[in-house]
């Protein structure tokens, strides 16, 4: 389904009441992958709210992203086990290496960076998931290696 159709369909199932704002944004993100400027404008129009207020809500919550996830979406686990073993440091290392913040995508659309909740691999924490592959026992030092390998793979593929 085309993106604008999808969004129309989602909006069609809700009443334009304030309490529906979060569910609508969540569902759009789930179906479309991210909340673009145009999408935020449509949502503002639908709820009769100023666009700045939608932007305020979208930026307040970490769960929303405003750019496409990228060809290699990097999910850094910040579940309890991973967090305790330095998940945050892994996230920082990716952030530094790729020069993007959490929730962002690199200019070339190659990498996206996100944090997630536990995905059940706590025994090999801290864990990162990229394109459904699990990277166990990450350290800030192995971050660069992971990125280089993915870049190489991208060039070949």
């Amino acid at each position: 389904m085309e993106e604008s159709k999808q969004i129309e369909e989602i909006l069609g199932r809700f009443h334009p009441e304030r309490e529906n704002l979060l569910p609508v944004l969540q569902e759009i993100q789930e179906k479309v992958g991210y909340l673009s400027r145009e999408v935020m404008e449509s949502v503002a129009h639908f709820f009769h709210l100023p666009p700045s207020e939608i932007f305020s809500v979208v930026t307040f919550y970490n769960q929303f992203r405003r750019k496409p996830p990228g060809r290699n979406p990097i999910h850094v686990c910040l579940g309890t086990a991973c967090y305790l073993l330095g998940g945050n440091l892994i996230l920082d290392a990716f952030s530094r290496e790729l020069q993007i913040k959490k929730g962002d995508t690199t200019e070339d659309g190659n990498f996206g960076l996100e944090s997630t909740a536990c995905f059940g691999c706590c025994n090999v924490a801290p864990v990162v998931k990229i394109n459904s592959q699990i990277y166990p026992k990450m350290t800030p030092g192995t971050v660069e290696e992971v990125i280089i390998n993915l870049r190489d793979k991208d060039k070949k593929g």
């Binding site: 100023p50 700045s52 207020e53 932007f55 305020s56 930026t59 307040f60």
Partner: peptide
């Protein structure tokens, strides 16, 4: 800005 019905500025991020 909200009072005059425009709301061009808002708090973002946290």
């Amino acid at each position: 800005c909200q009072g005059i019905g425009k709301s061009f500025l808002d708090f973002t991020y946290r």
